[in-house]
Nucleic acid binder design. Sequence first.
DNA 1: TAAAAATAACGTCAAATGTCCGCATTTTAC
DNA 2: GTAAAATGCGGACATTTGACGTTATTTTTA
Lengths: 192, 192
Amino acid sequence: MVAEFERYIKENVKLSDGDLELIRSVAVERTVRRKQLLLEEGEVCRHKIFICKGLLRTYRTRENGSEHVMMFSPETWWATDPESLNNQTPSLYYIDALEDSEVLLWTKKDFDMLCAQIPALKAYSEKLISINLNLGRQRIFSALSATPEEKYDEFVASYPNIFARIPLHMVASYLGVSLKTLSRIRQAQLKR
Amino acid sequence: MVAEFERYIKENVKLSDGDLELIRSVAVERTVRRKQLLLEEGEVCRHKIFICKGLLRTYRTRENGSEHVMMFSPETWWATDPESLNNQTPSLYYIDALEDSEVLLWTKKDFDMLCAQIPALKAYSEKLISINLNLGRQRIFSALSATPEEKYDEFVASYPNIFARIPLHMVASYLGVSLKTLSRIRQAQLKR
DNA sequence: TAAAAATAACGTCAAATGTCCGCATTTTAC
DNA sequence: GTAAAATGCGGACATTTGACGTTATTTTTA
């Protein structure tokens, strides 16, 4: 399971063998079964999660119980609730597995230590944050300005790999439209 | 004009007198008239902007010319396009002044230098980024799950100060609803 | 101060969207 | 292997929303 992470991290961060060993030494391996939760609302998020294999979903609910998908995390991506993790406050999010998955976990304490020891990792971590910020902005703009069909097309084009692996009602939830609307869009596109 | 910034920064970052002087020495003061642009689509964003006085708006347009407000920045807030600033790529955004404003500007180069020299500033900058990330997430969740009326109520409650200073059609644009819908909501609330 | 622009409400109408329902098919779990 | 659950389509209906045009009022600008 660690092999996937090694490949990923070597591609993205220039590390000495010692650095890599250090990072690995504080990582915890874990397998997660489909539908299993890694984080629950109200709980304090304890880890940064790297997905070696599988697919995670981060979502949030409203008082009425409706679920709203914030993010999908397939292999070689990360998942966590940074707000809860950094501030040690109860999380508003759920993270669960859409497929049986293999993940690596780091506690905040250990990850902070790693960043302090390994400047290149710290820099990469900052880069990821900045990418996330941009993706978030893009999504807000899309939510404000795009039609449901445009949102759908964007999603399929941006995440073809993920798209094929998740049920449509979760795509709808991610896009902020009803499954009904998504069905209609797909029907209309089929007829062309 | 610098006085506002001094008060702000002293409240939030522990700085030596020398640090403060250094930060000030590379800042450029500028006054902006209402409707004037500080950043235009296609241009590379050159500055981090601190608003001492006034109100800025960051927005983006679609091919059809529609405007979508990403952010309002009143006094003691910041504005910039981090993506364009960091990567020196053409921006997708406009930044303009909704009121006659007074701002301080730092180039990326100078701000990077400041962060390298002053760890406390770097840390604060990171904290701001993380706050922004959380606000972005919150807004996405709201876009996905809230009704127009809930979005409106949230906005008024969260930014009462800003709300009173901007035209309703810009509130509507920020919320991602039409002015018509916003009018209806307000009328309905008046009748209660 | 007068003309022009911006702002926001309102009415009407058509289109888009959501909710609720059932149904068929596939997938999952015991 | 079978029962149960999940998935996704479709119809009917009510509601919401947006587009467009009009008007009144306020604000800006020359």
